[in-house]
């Protein structure tokens, strides 16, 4: 019998069923960041943990194929650049750096609080990507190789 990477069939099936639900919950937390507890950081962590589930259940090779790690790295760098560009846009609009430059809307509505939801989304991407990449890199470290001292 061919030896498979990752965990057993049960774990794989459960992961396949739940991973999108977890990601959806992460998006919910990110999008409601200006209304409820959570926000970019909390939601990003949840998304990263969903990816981590896949990594644990299916192993490194499948995850690399599924998520395209090099793409995630680009996305991580891009998110900070977007953050800074959004901050500079406020400067161009005649406001101070990172200042809110669009309408604030009504309190307790989903589309409110000006640029804060946008920043939340960017931070969510950044946190999800960097947290997952940290785990990815640490999981790739091998203790066996290397020379004797």
């Amino acid at each position: 019998m061919k030896r498979q990477t990752g965990m057993t069939l049960i774990v794989k099936t459960i992961t396949r069923l739940t991973v999108w639900l977890i990601i959806l919950y992460g998006f919910y937390i990110i999008l409601h960041g200006h209304l409820t507890p959570g926000g970019g950081f909390g939601g990003g962590v949840i998304i990263a943990l969903a990816f981590l589930n896949v990594l644990l259940a299916y192993g490194r090779e499948f995850t690399d194929k599924w998520l395209k790690i090099s793409f995630l790295e680009k996305l991580e760098s891009l998110s900070i650049i977007l953050f800074l560009l959004l901050g500079i846009t406020a400067l161009l609009a005649g406001k101070l750096f990172l200042e809110n430059f669009i309408g604030k809307g009504h309190l307790y509505h989903l589309l409110s609080a000006g640029t804060i939801p946008v920043f939340n989304i960017i931070i969510g991407i950044k946190v999800a990507m960097s947290l997952f990449l940290v785990i990815w890199i640490l999981s790739g470290l091998k203790l066996e190789e290397g020379e004797e001292a």
Partner: peptide
């Protein structure tokens, strides 16, 4: 991890 690779 890197230190372990080098020094065992």
């Amino acid at each position: 991890a890197k230190l372990f690779q080098k020094y065992r």
